[in-house]
Design a protein around this nucleic acid. Structure first.
Lengths: 161, 161
DNA sequence: TATTGTTATACTCTATAACTATA
DNA sequence: TATAGTTATAGAGTATAACAATA
Protein backbone atom coordinates (compact mmCIF):
# COMPACT_ATOMS: atom_id res chain seq x y z
CA UNK A 1 0.00 0.00 0.00
CA UNK A 2 2.37 2.73 0.82
CA UNK A 3 5.42 3.64 -1.00
CA UNK A 4 8.63 5.23 0.03
CA UNK A 5 9.87 8.71 -0.32
CA UNK A 6 11.45 10.46 -3.18
CA UNK A 7 13.35 13.66 -3.57
CA UNK A 8 10.94 15.41 -1.32
CA UNK A 9 13.59 17.78 -0.11
CA UNK A 10 14.16 19.04 -3.59
CA UNK A 11 10.68 20.22 -4.39
CA UNK A 12 10.64 18.20 -7.57
CA UNK A 13 7.60 17.93 -9.71
CA UNK A 14 5.28 15.30 -8.34
CA UNK A 15 4.34 14.06 -11.73
CA UNK A 16 1.13 12.12 -11.12
CA UNK A 17 1.49 10.22 -14.35
CA UNK A 18 -1.87 9.88 -15.97
CA UNK A 19 -0.91 7.00 -18.23
CA UNK A 20 -0.26 4.46 -15.52
CA UNK A 21 -2.97 2.39 -13.89
CA UNK A 22 -2.77 2.56 -10.11
CA UNK A 23 -6.46 2.03 -9.44
CA UNK A 24 -5.79 -1.09 -7.39
CA UNK A 25 -3.54 0.77 -4.95
CA UNK A 26 -5.78 3.79 -4.94
CA UNK A 27 -8.66 1.71 -3.66
CA UNK A 28 -6.78 1.15 -0.41
CA UNK A 29 -7.08 3.62 2.44
CA UNK A 30 -3.66 2.57 3.67
CA UNK A 31 -1.98 3.59 0.43
CA UNK A 32 -3.81 6.90 0.20
CA UNK A 33 -3.28 7.76 3.86
CA UNK A 34 0.44 7.13 3.56
CA UNK A 35 0.75 9.21 0.42
CA UNK A 36 -1.19 12.07 2.00
CA UNK A 37 0.84 11.89 5.23
CA UNK A 38 4.14 12.00 3.33
CA UNK A 39 2.94 14.93 1.26
CA UNK A 40 2.08 16.91 4.37
CA UNK A 41 5.22 15.90 6.26
CA UNK A 42 7.33 17.19 3.37
CA UNK A 43 5.86 20.60 3.91
CA UNK A 44 6.26 20.29 7.66
CA UNK A 45 9.96 19.48 7.36
CA UNK A 46 10.54 22.31 4.92
CA UNK A 47 8.78 24.95 6.98
CA UNK A 48 9.81 23.98 10.49
CA UNK A 49 13.51 23.75 9.72
CA UNK A 50 14.14 26.95 11.65
CA UNK A 51 12.82 25.30 14.82
CA UNK A 52 15.11 22.29 14.37
CA UNK A 53 12.17 20.12 15.39
CA UNK A 54 11.48 17.04 13.35
CA UNK A 55 7.91 15.73 13.39
CA UNK A 56 8.46 13.38 16.31
CA UNK A 57 10.42 15.96 18.30
CA UNK A 58 7.58 18.37 17.69
CA UNK A 59 5.00 15.86 18.88
CA UNK A 60 6.92 15.04 22.04
CA UNK A 61 7.60 18.67 22.95
CA UNK A 62 4.01 19.60 22.24
CA UNK A 63 2.69 16.86 24.50
CA UNK A 64 5.08 17.83 27.29
CA UNK A 65 4.18 21.51 26.99
CA UNK A 66 0.48 20.75 27.21
CA UNK A 67 0.83 18.13 29.95
CA UNK A 68 3.18 19.33 32.66
CA UNK A 69 4.87 16.66 34.79
CA UNK A 70 4.12 13.91 32.33
CA UNK A 71 6.31 10.79 32.29
CA UNK A 72 8.16 9.35 29.32
CA UNK A 73 6.14 6.16 29.62
CA UNK A 74 2.85 7.99 29.22
CA UNK A 75 4.15 9.90 26.21
CA UNK A 76 5.22 6.63 24.60
CA UNK A 77 1.75 5.22 25.03
CA UNK A 78 0.08 8.36 23.76
CA UNK A 79 2.26 8.79 20.69
CA UNK A 80 2.84 5.10 20.03
CA UNK A 81 6.59 5.36 20.50
CA UNK A 82 8.89 2.64 21.77
CA UNK A 83 10.62 3.54 25.06
CA UNK A 84 14.16 3.14 23.72
CA UNK A 85 13.41 5.56 20.93
CA UNK A 86 12.21 8.41 23.10
CA UNK A 87 15.42 8.48 25.14
CA UNK A 88 17.46 10.32 22.52
CA UNK A 89 14.63 12.72 21.80
CA UNK A 90 14.30 13.71 25.46
CA UNK A 91 18.07 13.98 25.82
CA UNK A 92 18.19 16.34 22.86
CA UNK A 93 15.27 18.46 24.12
CA UNK A 94 16.91 18.71 27.52
CA UNK A 95 20.27 19.70 26.04
CA UNK A 96 18.50 22.45 24.15
CA UNK A 97 17.02 23.65 27.45
CA UNK A 98 13.50 23.09 26.13
CA UNK A 99 12.43 20.67 28.86
CA UNK A 100 13.38 19.78 32.42
CA UNK A 101 13.59 16.35 33.96
CA UNK A 102 13.09 15.93 37.67
CA UNK A 103 12.62 12.69 39.54
CA UNK A 104 9.00 12.26 40.55
CA UNK A 105 8.30 12.76 44.24
CA UNK A 106 5.73 9.98 44.47
CA UNK A 107 7.60 7.36 42.43
CA UNK A 108 11.36 7.47 42.17
CA UNK A 109 11.31 5.47 38.94
CA UNK A 110 9.39 8.08 37.06
CA UNK A 111 10.86 11.27 35.73
CA UNK A 112 8.60 14.27 35.63
CA UNK A 113 8.91 16.15 32.34
CA UNK A 114 7.98 19.79 31.82
CA UNK A 115 8.65 22.48 29.25
CA UNK A 116 10.93 25.38 30.19
CA UNK A 117 10.01 28.95 29.31
CA UNK A 118 12.22 28.61 26.26
CA UNK A 119 10.52 25.35 25.39
CA UNK A 120 7.07 26.86 25.75
CA UNK A 121 8.03 29.79 23.55
CA UNK A 122 9.49 27.51 20.90
CA UNK A 123 6.57 25.10 20.80
CA UNK A 124 4.14 28.01 20.59
CA UNK A 125 5.95 29.26 17.51
CA UNK A 126 6.32 25.73 16.12
CA UNK A 127 2.63 25.02 16.57
CA UNK A 128 1.80 28.14 14.60
CA UNK A 129 4.17 27.10 11.82
CA UNK A 130 2.82 23.55 11.89
CA UNK A 131 -0.76 24.76 11.65
CA UNK A 132 0.15 26.99 8.71
CA UNK A 133 2.06 24.19 7.03
CA UNK A 134 -0.77 21.71 7.55
CA UNK A 135 -3.25 24.15 6.03
CA UNK A 136 -1.00 24.93 3.09
CA UNK A 137 -0.33 21.29 2.35
CA UNK A 138 -4.05 20.56 2.40
CA UNK A 139 -5.27 23.70 0.70
CA UNK A 140 -6.88 21.63 -2.04
CA UNK A 141 -9.70 20.74 0.35
CA UNK A 142 -12.16 23.08 2.05
CA UNK A 143 -12.43 23.86 5.75
CA UNK A 144 -15.44 21.58 6.04
CA UNK A 145 -13.60 18.82 4.27
CA UNK A 146 -10.67 19.25 6.65
CA UNK A 147 -12.97 18.75 9.61
CA UNK A 148 -14.53 15.72 7.93
CA UNK A 149 -11.16 14.25 7.07
CA UNK A 150 -9.75 14.64 10.57
CA UNK A 151 -12.85 13.00 12.02
CA UNK A 152 -12.61 10.04 9.69
CA UNK A 153 -8.89 9.53 10.28
CA UNK A 154 -9.33 9.63 14.06
CA UNK A 155 -12.15 7.14 13.77
CA UNK A 156 -9.84 4.79 11.89
CA UNK A 157 -6.84 4.75 14.20
CA UNK A 158 -8.59 5.35 17.47
CA UNK A 159 -10.73 2.28 16.96
CA UNK A 160 -10.48 0.27 20.14
CA UNK A 161 -9.80 -2.90 18.16
CA UNK B 1 2.81 15.77 13.56
CA UNK B 2 3.53 12.13 13.14
CA UNK B 3 5.05 9.82 15.56
CA UNK B 4 7.03 6.72 15.25
CA UNK B 5 6.13 3.12 15.66
CA UNK B 6 5.81 1.01 18.70
CA UNK B 7 5.55 -2.68 19.30
CA UNK B 8 3.21 -3.03 16.42
CA UNK B 9 4.35 -6.54 15.74
CA UNK B 10 3.24 -7.64 19.13
CA UNK B 11 -0.39 -6.67 18.96
CA UNK B 12 -0.13 -4.75 22.19
CA UNK B 13 -2.96 -2.70 23.54
CA UNK B 14 -3.05 0.65 21.83
CA UNK B 15 -3.99 2.45 24.98
CA UNK B 16 -5.38 5.77 23.75
CA UNK B 17 -4.83 7.40 27.10
CA UNK B 18 -7.81 9.60 27.86
CA UNK B 19 -6.04 11.69 30.48
CA UNK B 20 -3.47 13.28 28.24
CA UNK B 21 -4.14 16.36 26.16
CA UNK B 22 -3.16 15.83 22.54
CA UNK B 23 -5.69 18.23 21.04
CA UNK B 24 -2.98 20.34 19.45
CA UNK B 25 -1.57 17.39 17.50
CA UNK B 26 -5.00 16.06 16.71
CA UNK B 27 -5.90 19.28 14.93
CA UNK B 28 -3.29 18.50 12.29
CA UNK B 29 -4.18 16.38 9.28
CA UNK B 30 -0.56 15.31 8.97
CA UNK B 31 -0.54 13.80 12.45
CA UNK B 32 -3.86 12.02 12.01
CA UNK B 33 -3.01 10.75 8.53
CA UNK B 34 0.26 9.30 9.76
CA UNK B 35 -1.38 7.60 12.73
CA UNK B 36 -4.09 6.15 10.52
CA UNK B 37 -1.59 4.97 7.91
CA UNK B 38 0.56 3.24 10.52
CA UNK B 39 -2.48 1.58 12.03
CA UNK B 40 -3.49 0.16 8.67
CA UNK B 41 0.04 -0.83 7.67
CA UNK B 42 0.34 -2.85 10.88
CA UNK B 43 -2.56 -4.96 9.76
CA UNK B 44 -1.14 -5.19 6.26
CA UNK B 45 2.20 -6.47 7.50
CA UNK B 46 0.56 -8.98 9.78
CA UNK B 47 -1.79 -10.40 7.19
CA UNK B 48 0.40 -10.41 4.12
CA UNK B 49 3.32 -12.14 5.77
CA UNK B 50 2.60 -15.32 3.82
CA UNK B 51 3.18 -13.45 0.56
CA UNK B 52 6.55 -12.11 1.75
CA UNK B 53 5.58 -8.78 0.22
CA UNK B 54 6.17 -5.68 2.24
CA UNK B 55 4.01 -2.65 1.45
CA UNK B 56 6.42 -1.17 -1.07
CA UNK B 57 7.11 -4.53 -2.72
CA UNK B 58 3.37 -4.99 -2.99
CA UNK B 59 2.92 -1.58 -4.59
CA UNK B 60 5.67 -2.15 -7.12
CA UNK B 61 4.51 -5.63 -8.11
CA UNK B 62 0.93 -4.44 -8.36
CA UNK B 63 1.89 -1.58 -10.67
CA UNK B 64 3.96 -3.88 -12.87
CA UNK B 65 1.19 -6.48 -13.05
CA UNK B 66 -1.34 -3.87 -14.12
CA UNK B 67 1.02 -2.05 -16.48
CA UNK B 68 2.93 -4.50 -18.63
CA UNK B 69 6.25 -3.33 -20.10
CA UNK B 70 6.51 -0.43 -17.70
CA UNK B 71 9.93 1.02 -16.89
CA UNK B 72 11.48 1.45 -13.45
CA UNK B 73 11.64 5.18 -14.01
CA UNK B 74 7.91 5.45 -14.55
CA UNK B 75 7.20 3.36 -11.46
CA UNK B 76 9.42 5.65 -9.42
CA UNK B 77 7.50 8.68 -10.58
CA UNK B 78 4.14 7.02 -9.98
CA UNK B 79 4.93 5.71 -6.51
CA UNK B 80 7.22 8.54 -5.45
CA UNK B 81 10.22 6.28 -5.01
CA UNK B 82 13.84 7.25 -5.49
CA UNK B 83 15.53 5.32 -8.31
CA UNK B 84 18.30 3.86 -6.11
CA UNK B 85 15.70 2.44 -3.78
CA UNK B 86 13.75 0.50 -6.37
CA UNK B 87 16.81 -1.42 -7.56
CA UNK B 88 16.84 -3.87 -4.69
CA UNK B 89 13.09 -4.33 -4.85
CA UNK B 90 13.18 -5.24 -8.54
CA UNK B 91 16.16 -7.52 -7.98
CA UNK B 92 14.27 -9.35 -5.28
CA UNK B 93 11.09 -9.66 -7.35
CA UNK B 94 13.11 -11.01 -10.27
CA UNK B 95 14.94 -13.53 -8.10
CA UNK B 96 11.57 -14.76 -6.90
CA UNK B 97 10.54 -15.19 -10.55
CA UNK B 98 7.66 -12.76 -10.08
CA UNK B 99 8.76 -10.33 -12.79
CA UNK B 100 10.87 -10.36 -15.94
CA UNK B 101 13.26 -7.68 -17.12
CA UNK B 102 14.00 -7.34 -20.83
CA UNK B 103 15.81 -4.49 -22.51
CA UNK B 104 13.39 -2.27 -24.36
CA UNK B 105 13.52 -2.58 -28.14
CA UNK B 106 13.01 1.12 -28.79
CA UNK B 107 15.41 2.46 -26.15
CA UNK B 108 18.29 0.37 -24.96
CA UNK B 109 18.53 2.32 -21.72
CA UNK B 110 15.08 1.30 -20.58
CA UNK B 111 14.22 -2.06 -19.15
CA UNK B 112 10.76 -3.38 -19.79
CA UNK B 113 9.18 -4.88 -16.70
CA UNK B 114 6.36 -7.40 -16.68
CA UNK B 115 4.84 -9.84 -14.22
CA UNK B 116 5.32 -13.57 -14.79
CA UNK B 117 2.46 -16.02 -14.40
CA UNK B 118 3.70 -16.70 -10.90
CA UNK B 119 3.87 -12.98 -10.25
CA UNK B 120 0.35 -12.43 -11.53
CA UNK B 121 -0.97 -15.24 -9.38
CA UNK B 122 0.78 -13.92 -6.30
CA UNK B 123 -0.31 -10.33 -6.74
CA UNK B 124 -3.89 -11.46 -7.32
CA UNK B 125 -3.85 -13.25 -3.99
CA UNK B 126 -1.99 -10.39 -2.32
CA UNK B 127 -4.47 -7.83 -3.58
CA UNK B 128 -7.29 -9.86 -2.11
CA UNK B 129 -5.50 -10.06 1.22
CA UNK B 130 -4.67 -6.35 1.09
CA UNK B 131 -8.26 -5.43 0.37
CA UNK B 132 -9.44 -7.59 3.28
CA UNK B 133 -6.79 -6.14 5.55
CA UNK B 134 -7.61 -2.57 4.56
CA UNK B 135 -11.29 -3.18 5.25
CA UNK B 136 -10.62 -4.83 8.57
CA UNK B 137 -8.28 -2.09 9.72
CA UNK B 138 -10.88 0.52 8.83
CA UNK B 139 -13.96 -1.32 9.96
CA UNK B 140 -14.82 1.48 12.35
CA UNK B 141 -16.04 3.58 9.42
CA UNK B 142 -18.87 2.82 7.01
CA UNK B 143 -18.61 2.05 3.31
CA UNK B 144 -19.76 5.56 2.46
CA UNK B 145 -17.20 7.01 4.82
CA UNK B 146 -14.49 4.91 3.19
CA UNK B 147 -15.36 6.36 -0.18
CA UNK B 148 -15.38 9.86 1.27
CA UNK B 149 -12.08 9.33 3.05
CA UNK B 150 -10.31 8.00 -0.03
CA UNK B 151 -11.59 10.93 -2.07
CA UNK B 152 -10.35 13.46 0.45
CA UNK B 153 -6.93 11.83 0.82
CA UNK B 154 -6.43 11.72 -2.94
CA UNK B 155 -7.43 15.35 -3.19
CA UNK B 156 -4.76 16.20 -0.63
CA UNK B 157 -1.75 14.45 -2.13
CA UNK B 158 -2.71 14.64 -5.77
CA UNK B 159 -2.91 18.42 -5.56
CA UNK B 160 -0.88 19.76 -8.44
CA UNK B 161 0.85 22.23 -6.17
C1' DT C 1 7.05 -9.89 40.28
C1' DA C 2 6.02 -5.74 37.52
C1' DT C 3 7.22 -1.09 36.00
C1' DT C 4 10.23 2.94 34.34
C1' DG C 5 13.90 4.25 32.13
C1' DT C 6 18.10 3.10 29.94
C1' DT C 7 21.98 1.03 26.97
C1' DA C 8 23.50 -1.32 23.17
C1' DT C 9 22.56 -2.83 18.95
C1' DA C 10 20.46 -4.57 14.73
C1' DC C 11 17.55 -3.87 11.11
C1' DT C 12 14.98 -1.24 7.80
C1' DC C 13 13.96 2.79 5.29
C1' DT C 14 15.28 6.91 2.92
C1' DA C 15 18.58 10.03 0.75
C1' DT C 16 22.80 11.77 -1.80
C1' DA C 17 26.66 11.53 -4.89
C1' DA C 18 28.73 9.61 -8.56
C1' DC C 19 29.12 6.34 -12.21
C1' DT C 20 27.84 3.64 -16.76
C1' DA C 21 25.42 3.28 -20.94
C1' DT C 22 22.61 4.91 -23.99
C1' DA C 23 20.10 8.71 -26.46
C1' DT D 1 23.62 17.47 -22.78
C1' DA D 2 19.98 14.66 -20.82
C1' DT D 3 17.98 10.21 -19.38
C1' DA D 4 17.62 5.26 -17.30
C1' DG D 5 19.56 2.42 -14.43
C1' DT D 6 22.97 1.31 -11.13
C1' DT D 7 26.48 1.22 -7.14
C1' DA D 8 28.02 2.54 -2.84
C1' DT D 9 27.09 4.65 1.14
C1' DA D 10 25.32 7.71 4.63
C1' DG D 11 21.74 8.96 7.56
C1' DA D 12 17.29 8.50 9.80
C1' DG D 13 13.83 5.73 11.67
C1' DT D 14 12.26 1.56 14.00
C1' DA D 15 12.89 -2.78 16.50
C1' DT D 16 14.56 -6.33 20.06
C1' DA D 17 16.97 -7.95 24.09
C1' DA D 18 18.78 -7.17 28.38
C1' DC D 19 19.80 -4.49 32.36
C1' DA D 20 19.43 -1.26 36.76
C1' DA D 21 16.63 0.92 39.91
C1' DT D 22 12.41 1.18 42.08
C1' DA D 23 7.84 -0.26 43.39
Amino acid sequence: MPTAATSRKKSHQRSLDPDIDMSQLESLIGYNARRAALHIIDDFNAHLRETALKPVDFSVLSVIAHNANISAHVICKGLDLLPPNIVGILKSLEERKLITRVVSASDNRQISLSATRTGKALIKKAEQLAAQSDLRATQSISADERTQLIGLLKKVYQAQS
